[in-house]
Design a protein around this nucleic acid. Structure first.
Lengths: 340, 340
DNA sequence: AAATATAATGCAATCGTTTGCAAATTCCAT
DNA sequence: ATGGAATTTGCAAACGATTGCATTATATTT
């Protein structure tokens, strides 16, 4: 049987309440008994039962992180370890711990979230994605449960604390980058169109082309899975067009990898025959062949800041929502070039 | 205020104990009241408070996963997301949830572990690494707390449930692979020498060279960080030797990446000037330049099986320990070749 | 030494469940 | 109708902490 506060009390010859107070470093306890109790704690190797504590305090000192659905696929994307790293890094300074929720379907995750929330397992939640019309987000709002969003919410932007890049501008900049290189036929390969990132980057992309007076044939816009295979499929379609693009904006490095390898299989050279720019600048974008020009969105910082905002929000629930926009930067490598 | 079992009881006009029993689907409750209670639960959107439950049941339905120290670095290695994916995938079928523990120093993690364990936050733990003389493992053994190890324990192998590859043989096979290609000067770049993986792969490596009657100059054995930089440093030392190796065994793909890029910086061609074989076969090993010949250790399966063993162990604590050896396979790509 | 003020401790209720046991209800046979 | 068994339900004590309030011990003043 585990050692409880009562055991300490008995050993130190005080009441449990006294022990509790020395644990809380309550100043009302005399130095003498404080010492005595601490010795007992030391001796028995006591550690408070966190469940009991949570029960009475209505607080857990844990935060939950919710991954997008089909975790089994999505976790392959180095984006996620990197955000988590950022989150971890912050919460560690605040003595919070980390609950992780994954799942294959949205339904499964939704159930996990209500269990977490109503079961009082965590004090707050960070959503690692922003999906259009997301049931989970609605639920959290309705429950008035502390949460922050990595990404931009579709609605209620004023009422939600979120951490994001300016993905619209980033999409625009990426496209402009290619336009400035002289490209006139630029395609877009995006991930799940229900995700706000995809949407935003796409509208930025379109805006840039429009400003430059360029056409956007419908077939130039593809939406695929956020994985290598997604990139592969998209490329296979694009190169069959009568007027294939000379450049592609890809919304995710992992997809870009698929693009690259498929292109090389089919005998195309990047960047000589086709330029590719992508997003996230994850660890392997510099080691691909050729190294990818990619928009660095500072994933770690997204994670770190989101955790920070969440903890703030937990501590002061009626703080006003805030939005943090993390800067991005195009890091140029060797996958883009002026077209022939 | 959250809705509790008492609210349900009041609404359904029964005692809390009755509600509890229908929740547990206790057969002693009549169909009629069961229906009534369920309706009330539905109506108020009740979900049990998990802390209260844990407190009385002495069980949490959560497992903890413990990362190696310096999480901020180590998490960059795709090995970890992939094990976690395996773990997640299993525990999801069992309605367990996931606690994640990271930290910069071993001390920090140790404290996290005792907090988790004594604080009764989790029912069991999976250690994602095996370190020589690991304080945390000793603690878990001493506390008789359910845990499993990914990797091979240094001692007590009989008393600990662990999931591992046969890293000794894998190291041997990797070296033999190079030997069979005709290499006579083979170096070894390993990660932290305190980790059992490193140790085992190294002894396999040595055995192979010994059997082939090859020398192993001391400078041929390097121990570095499990990161790209580690690979970089090692290479810089190796190429300065009067007799530089013609092939290298690297114990981790990420390090191998550093090896590859450094080699190419210095004007060496892989595999023409130097062969490289590494371990883990993580996602990017096929997209590096050149694609890496790597020993696939089935990371996902390591995770999946470990979770399964842990849950078994939690449910039947006096089950005998067992060891699961997951098969590995060398997947040949383009980083190895017969020396000139 | 008594009265009062102050500091230190303890009592007991509480958080939201579960569960052994007692009490109440229903059922059936007489 | 009545007794007794079988079926349902409720009471109350846990689980291990925290905390407002009462109480006791100590210090201060007269």
């Amino acid at each position: 049987m585990a050692v409880t506060i009562k055991d300490i009390a008995k050993l130190a010859n005080v009441a449990p309440s006294t022990v509790s107070r020395v644990l809380a470093n309550n100043s009302v306890i005399s130095e003498k008994t404080k010492k005595r109790v601490q010795k007992a704690i030391e001796e028995l190797g006591y550690h408070p039962n966190l469940n009991a504590r949570s029960l009475i305090n209505q607080t857990t000192n844990a935060i939950g992180i919710v991954m997008p659905d089909s975790a089994s696929k999505t976790f392959q994307n180095p984006f996620f370890p990197e955000v988590i790293r950022g989150i971890s890094s912050f919460i560690h300074t605040k003595e919070y711990s980390l609950y992780m929720l994954t799942g294959e379907t949205q339904e499964e995750i939704y159930n996990g979230v209500v269990k977490m929330v109503q079961g009082r397992r965590v004090d707050g939640i960070v959503l690692l994605y922003s999906r259009i019309d997301d049931k989970i987000m609605h639920y959290l709002i309705e429950q008035d449960f502390p949460f922050v969003l990595i990404g931009k919410p579709q609605n209620f932007a004023q009422e939600i604390t979120y951490i994001d890049n300016d993905n619209y501008s980033a999409g625009k900049d990426a496209a402009d980058y290619l336009i400035n290189l002289g490209h006139r036929h630029i395609a877009f390969i995006g991930g799940n169109p229900d995700l706000m990132v995809t949407k935003e980057r796409l509208s930025g992309f379109k805006e840039a082309l429009k400003n430059a007076g360029l056409e956007i044939p419908e077939e130039y816009i593809c939406h695929m899975e956020f994985l290598q295979e997604g990139g592969k499929e998209a490329v296979e379609q694009l190169i069959l067009l009568k007027q294939p693009p000379t450049a592609i904006v890809v919304t995710d490095d992992l997809m870009a990898l698929g693009v690259l390898s498929t292109l090389s299989e089919k005998g195309y050279n990047v960047p000589d025959d086709l330029s590719v720019i992508s997003f996230n600048n994850v660890i392997f974008s510099e080691i691909s062949n050729p190294p990818l020009t990619s928009v660095d969105v500072r994933i770690f910082q997204l994670g770190y800041e989101s955790a920070q905002s969440l903890v703030e929000k937990i501590k002061s629930p009626n703080l006003l929502p805030k939005n943090i926009i993390v800067p991005y930067k195009i890091v140029e490598r060797q996958s883009c070039k002026t077209p022939k």
